[in-house]
Write a protein that binds this DNA or RNA. Sequence first.
DNA 1: TGCGCTAAATTTTTT
DNA 2: ATTTAGCGCA
Length: 777
Amino acid sequence: MTDFDDYAPQAGGLAARAAAAAQRPRYLDGLNPEQRAAVETLDGPVLVLAGAGTGKTRALTTRIAHIMALGQARAYEILAVTFTNKAAREMRERVEMLVGDGAQAMQWLGTFHAISAKILRRHAELVGLKPNFTILDTDDQIRLLKQVLQAENIDDKRWPARALAMRIDGWKNRGLLPAQVPAGEAESFANGKGGALYALYQERLKILNAVDFGDLLLETLRLFRENPDVLADYQKRFKYILVDEYQDTNVAQYLWLRLISQGRRNVCCVGDDDQSVYGWRGAEVENILRFEQDFPGAKIVRLERNYRSTGHILAAASHLIAHNEGRLGKTLFTDGEEGEKPTLTGVWDSQEEARVIGEDIEQLQRKGHSLEEIAILVRASFQMREFEERFVEIGLPYRIIGGPRFYERAEIRDALAYLRCVGQPSDDLAFERIINTPKRGLGDATVQLLHEYGRRERIPLMQAARFLVETEELKPKPRGALKSLVADFERWRNLIDSKPQHELAEMVLDESGYTQMWRDDKTPEAAGRLENLKELVRAMEEFPDLAAFLEHVSLVMETEESKEQARVSVMTLHAAKGLEFETVYLPGWEEGLFPHQRSLDEQGRAGLEEERRLAYVGVTRAKRRARIFFASNRRIRGLWQPTVPSRFVDNLPSDHVEVVEAPSASQYGGYAVSRFANLDVYGSDYSTPGWKRAKAGATTPRAEPMRESRPRAKQPMTIEGEVVARSSTNARYGAGSRVFHLKFGPGTVAAVDGNKCTVDFDKAGRKMVLESFLQAG
DNA sequence: TGCGCTAAATTTTTT
DNA sequence: ATTTAGCGCA
């Protein structure tokens, strides 16, 4: 029993409040005044602007505990929404720590999508669905769109299904039904057919009794709008509403929230505009910036006391993010020690970057730091490979977070498709996926025929197959194969109620020949795939039945990860949001990669600001040590590209950042040669003139090879005292100078910008390189 | 129908 | 460089 259970019984009575006030419950201890305001301001709309590391989750969970402790609402009258299953799970666990089993009763704690699915299943018929509708994932969605495109005779080469899917997702993210898509946009795909294709796709979904992820929200919105009584019911039910990571909401989610919260208006949104990094998938920072207008009378609480990072780290992060416009503006502070300054290191190339970081980690390890408290945060997932290779080489345990997820692996999706066919005979997409996996001689011709027949008779493929095998339409061989497949499914389906789902799954996979297919496969991954299938069957045991399991996998695309050995975490910056580590490595701070070129090209200034927020998220993950790196050469798509330091490096305050030489920089010449010997920029023939010159050049030590800490020249800048990584007192080369570069060979300087030179290389073409990597040629 | 080749496309990721 | 999808040929 917890210390405030005593207060719970009398719902919202004044007596309960008085008691609570008189005897301050222990769960409020240790909250700072702002956190306490976030917890205790129960009536009306509240926006909690919670900076990184300011105890946001604590405030949120304590608020829930507080509501229940005061008896203001029961667990099932509180709606608590998160974005990810992980966040939902964490919130449930932490509420549980405060109120004990009371958290179990929180049936409305979950992701936007899970809660929407729950509501939709209850009222499915009101939006033209059956309660057992299937939830399609991205893969199914694209395959279905491909069919729609083909049916419309649209060249899916020129108009790829993936692109249409993105457009439709975009519309759904903005809460637009086909009829509501602005005319200009509706015409923007396949010679004006975009909107029509969207409508056709929605029709197909209804026929399949299926929804995609976007529909979960969109159809719930429609349900609420078209059925005020249903909406009123939920508005009344949810006495308190809490939303986590509000800065990540898209328009559909925003509208959803507005509708559902209009009843009692006790809505509390928690977020940080500086950590909005999902604009590219429809999130609207504006939602949080506009909160006060949307919810008049809203109380704003700012959490600015940071409990996570040391002073220098916080100063660096704050200074960096201050370059963004359009912020609500928070000033994070800490009473903690200044700690170590974040470091900035320039390295020759991405391989050296991995090497240096690996060595640094080993050194920390020797000093007794746990690998669990160390993370490498990259901008793009291709950067991970270099670290993986290096860590395997030196035997450093690591863990990749966010790679292809369990339920997205091909073998798991195949297995699930079999199970979906058993549980839901009308699941055409699933049936099509496995009809010829393993190969049973049922190719395009057969599928085409099934489609035709199914469409003509308005029946699912499985049923079409059942009829078709009784006719002469098919050639004997496919006919026999299809007949036995249909019979198999009927047999399995009859066992649904009599056999535990995991045993049934095992049986289906064996008897269909699916497991055999992988046993016969001699590629190195086959063993792992069989292992995954076993894991799948094991995971099924924990569910009451097949339907429950299928619902779980469609919404929760992840499995628990084992934590038996301490490992370094390697993940993208996006995946790192919400996490914290003692030591954080931030490699790849180079123009083009971070900020990512594409983000700049497509989103312009907004894109740049989002990238900068991502940098801010990265730095603020660090509790005690942040180490930033940039390389001068990076292999992108197999080609070595010269790179220049990120503008974010210039956004760091020099007072709080220490510039550190890479260990190898002092022996740069010799090192570069050995490194260079592995490359074959000029072909593998080491006797070519280019190679000889490169070698000669590299062994000649140069005056100032890798130093970024040259005397700082003041450049016109908005903010004083920044690290000037690209500064240069005197340009050594002018336009027209002949120069030589280790990787690109001889060339002519075309333009000079600070210490960056644009050079027309004789062989490699025009590149921008750092002046310090050039020598007179 | 199935295999093997060529060609194209490669930011971020949840649900 | 690597992977994947689509196409053409056996």
